[in-house]
Simulated scan of single mutants.
Amino acid sequence: MIYLCIDDTDSLDSIGTGRLAREIADVLNIKYPVVCITRHQLFVHPDIPYTSHNSCAVIHLLDIPKTEYPILFNQAKLIMKERFVEGSDPGIALAGEDQVNSAMVAFGFDTKCMIVTQERARKIADHAGILLEGLGGSEGGVIGAIAGIGLAASGSDGRYLQLGSIREKRGERTVQEILQTGIDQVITLEGKSVSDGTVMIEKFPQPARLLGKAIVLVDERDGQLHLVKRD
Score class of each variant (00 low, 15 high):
I2L: 15
I6T: 11
I6S: 06
D10R: 14
S14R: 04
L20A: 08
A21F: 06
L28M: 11
N29E: 06
Y32T: 10
Y32E: 04
V35A: 10
V35F: 08
C36H: 09
C36R: 15
H40F: 12
P46D: 11
I48F: 12
T51E: 07
S52V: 14
V58Y: 00
L62S: 10
D63W: 12
E68D: 10
Y69E: 04
N74Y: 04
A76W: 06
A76N: 06
M80L: 14
K81E: 01
E82C: 01
F84K: 01
V85Y: 00
S88H: 02
D89F: 01
G91Q: 00
I92T: 02
A95Y: 10
A95M: 12
E97P: 00
S102Y: 11
S102F: 11
A106F: 11
F107D: 03
F109M: 08
V116A: 05
E119F: 08
R120F: 06
I124R: 02
L131V: 00
L132M: 03
V142A: 02
A147C: 05
S154L: 11
S154W: 10
D157F: 14
D157T: 13
L161S: 06
G164C: 09
E168R: 10
R170F: 09
Q176H: 12
Q176R: 15
T181C: 13
I183T: 09
D184A: 13
Q185V: 12
K192A: 09
K192N: 07
K192Q: 09
V199A: 02
I201Y: 01
E202L: 13
Q206E: 07
L210A: 12
A214N: 12
I215Q: 07
V218I: 05
Q224S: 07
Q224C: 07
L225H: 05
L225A: 01
L227F: 06
V228P: 02
V228K: 13
